[in-house]
Write a protein that binds this DNA or RNA. Structure first.
Length: 481
RNA sequence: GUCCCCAUCGUCUAGUCGGCCUAGGACACCGCGCUUUCAAUGCGGCAACACGGGUUCGAAUCCCGUUGGGGACGCCA
């Protein structure tokens, strides 16, 4: 089995698994599975200060949630320093790299308010006599190792973007090993990809400009290049790079909001890739067999939450009650009322409610908001929405009579509440629909909610009464009574 | 600023190396139907080849330029 595909996902643990990282991981995973290859997980934690175990765990958690299992690793760069040192020593030996004694921050820092940081290392240490430089280094003078960028141009073929070429003059003599002995990103990536026999480097397009440096390193090491494939970036609605500013940026935040991993997975797969036909709702297996780098697009994609919501609703209406119950219970636990509500209802009633909610759950946002309104008392009454259906005074009259009725009624079931409501509306010559709309808004504070009777029964008699009374007094207050 | 990349409906995109595109699908939005319950569902509608030059019998598809957007320019990754 030679030439088998080996790809890697190599996040740096400086933050949780974010949307862009997840998409990169996802594409790598799909590619590996499609080709029956391996996905290696590598943690690029060479930046001592910015990395933490907590972040590593956060990334693993995100990957597990999405169901992206890796085959090898996680490997940590922080445990491979010796490899980087040896690699660099060889380049130093061959004169392909040189020691630099400049202070880490000498010419650059200046650019205070200038938004355009631009300077390139002036290569002043390039001319140092190797033996002299070595002597100084051995004498204890701190120094970094820089790559000696040759003349000419550097080109590589990208599986997505095609041929990319740059003049080497545009590439500075980048640092390989910092003065504290830590490897830089470029060094780590190349050494690791080589050691781990990575065949395809699939990563974000923000690395396109970095790739020539790495290509130069492969050449210096006299090793063949892996295939490179850069993925278009995912942007926020304002076409700017996705950031906290755009709301949730961590994958797990979506889990907490109630998005199903299958939905998120499906949505992400279609960001920057498409099967080529009109299919959108695709299972993992379908995605695996359909995926190919040729079909990855080049233009950056905006992360549109509306479409994600749609995918979520599609999966939500298809998922089983247990899964749905899991989501619901999270919400209810958060509201601290789960136990309360289950006790209030016979088990079958609860299940029935969940069943009924299933096809109606559209956006998870509404969905969870709905439940909050259901089981807690901090719902807010949307007067404008209710007024669309019935005038306040009219509505108040109904609410009054409902309260009276329910005070006596100990039979609070789906059938009886519906029967009663319809009867009431008819006697008063009002379309039942109007009353039901108005009550839905009044009871849940939501414009979109499950069926009214489900709401009432699920709330239970006392809660319903409670809310009806509050609604009534609001209406009264409004009429200045 | 320098270099690299990108450019089809508001958004995700299809458009296999020019003709079958009077540009297709999905989300969102609007309308209608179904349900004497919003939603969901069904049907329909609105809506794009950034601009300007070429090349060609013929260009969304090829070339050049302009504009716009993104990325990279660290002893961050």
């Amino acid at each position: 089995m030679k030439n088998s595909v080996r790809v890697r996902f190599a996040p740096s643990p400086t933050g949780y698994l974010h949307v862009g990282g997840a998409r990169t991981a996802l594409f790598n995973w799909l590619f590996a599975r499609h080709h029956g290859g391996k996905l290696i997980l590598r943690i690029e934690d060479t930046d001592l200060s910015r990395s933490s175990d907590e972040m590593v765990e956060g990334i693993l958690e995100g990957m597990r949630w999405l169901g992206l299992a890796w085959d090898e690793g996680p490997f940590f760069q922080s445990q491979r320093f010796e490899r980087y040192r040896v690699f660099t020593a060889e380049l130093l030996e061959k004169g392909l790299a040189y020691r630099c004694f400049c202070r880490p921050d000498s010419p650059a820092a200046a650019d205070a308010n200038g938004e355009i940081p631009s300077w390139s290392y002036d290569r002043r240490c390039r001319a140092l006599e190797p033996s002299e430089a070595r002597r100084r280094a051995e004498a204890g003078e701190p120094c970094a190792a820089r790559f000696r960028v040759p003349e000419g141009k550097t080109a590589y073929r990208d599986q997505v973007y095609g041929d990319i070429e740059v003049e080497n003059e545009q590439v500075e003599d980048f640092v390989l090993l910092r003065s504290d002995g830590m490897p830089t990103y470029h060094l780590g990536v190349v050494v690791d990809d080589l050691d781990m026999q990575i065949t395809h480097v699939i990563r974000g397009a923000d690395h396109i400009s970095n790739t020539p440096k790495q290509v130069l390193l492969y050449r210096a090491a006299d090793k063949p290049l892996p295939e490179f494939a850069h993925l278009p970036l995912i942007l926020g609605p304002d076409k700017q790079r996705l950031s906290k500013r755009h709301g949730a940026t961590s994958v797990m935040a979506y889990s907490e909001m109630g998005y199903l991993p299958e939905a998120f997975f499906n949505f992400l797969a279609l960001l920057g890739w498409s099967p080529g036909d009109d299919r959108e709702l695709l299972s993992r297996d379908e995605l695996i067999s359909l995926f190919s780098l040729e079909r990855v697009g080049k233009a950056n994609a905006v992360f549109g939450i509306d479409k994600l919501d749609w995918f979520n609703s599609q999966y939500l209406t298809r998922c089983d009650t247990a899964t749905l119950g899991g989501i619901v219970s999270r919400e209810l636990y958060a509201a601290g009322v789960w136990r309360d509500s289950t006790e209030a209802l016979p088990e079958e009633g609860m299940h029935r409610t969940l069943e009924l909610l299933k096809p109606r759950a559209r956006k998870i946002g509404d969905f969870s908001g709905r439940f909050r309104a259901f089981f807690t008392d901090d719902f807010s009454y949307d007067e404008a929405a209710a007024a669309k259906f019935l005038s306040d005074s009219r509505l108040r009259g109904f609410v009054r009579s409902l309260i009276e009725r329910y005070r006596e009624d100990d039979q609070f079931t789906l059938g009886s509440t519906e029967k009663h409501l319809r009867g009431l509306a008819e006697r008063e010559g009002v379309k039942p629909a109007l009353l039901m709309h108005a009550l839905r808004v009044g009871l849940t504070g939501q414009g979109v909610a499950p069926g009214l009777f489900d709401v009432m029964v699920t709330l239970g008699r006392s809660r319903t009464l409670n809310r009806l009374e509050r609604l009534c007094s609001r209406l009264a207050g409004k009429n200045g009574e």
